[in-house]
Design a protein around this nucleic acid. Sequence first.
DNA 1: GCGACAG
DNA 2: ATCTTGTCGC
Length: 232
Amino acid sequence: MTRQQIQEFEQLQQHLRQAVVTTDAWAGEIKTVAGVDVAYEKGSDTLIAAVAVLDAHTLALREVVSFRGEATFPYIPGLFSFRELPAVLQALEKLPQAPDLVVCDGQGLAHPRRFGLACHLGVATGIPTIGCAKTRLLGEYQPLAPSRGSYAELVDNGEVVGRALRTQTDKNPVFVSVGHNISLETATEWVLRLTPLYRLPETTRAADHAVNTLLRATSASKDEDDSAKASL
DNA sequence: GCGACAG
DNA sequence: ATCTTGTCGC
């Protein structure tokens, strides 16, 4: 990927970011919350994207859909969404009913151009999205209390781009930021609601589990193919 | 120039 | 993300 091409994608992000909405832009009640995750097969660029839909009230798993394909874009930190979004969209299309809210495994506005994966997915689908990353990409934050629920603003260039949120007492915080059609305050509430037992949201855990199960299943059948070919 | 850099 | 064993703890 040339520097020229990278700049073109960065400009595309600058353009698309203008469509991001940072208020609670939905009507009615959130009944389903989905988590999305992507995993890669070790050597190749073959990937599997999974969407796990949970009941927003009970957090019970309702449905899982997935898509297996090839990554067509390299991994570049600031252009992460261009790598994973296509596969995620293909998986989402398999759902008979779109979820009311999606929690992404990555950043939303807490991004160099304020357009992380969660924003990209939200703008592409219109679905409210939250970015909930395990690690920080940018920004600074003050020390936060050790108790679950405490948080500190994530500031980048004098701008609040998200929050470092403690979802479990004495465990490292997660980094929450607005994706699309939701406020930072509401996004924080949802992430807390989704983390009654673990550091990561149940949505992310369900999607991660699904993706790894599928990865094992496909690599196992691939081994069968290989041994079958070897025995010929 | 050097290091850092969501997954 | 992925490569990887044992180990400490509930």
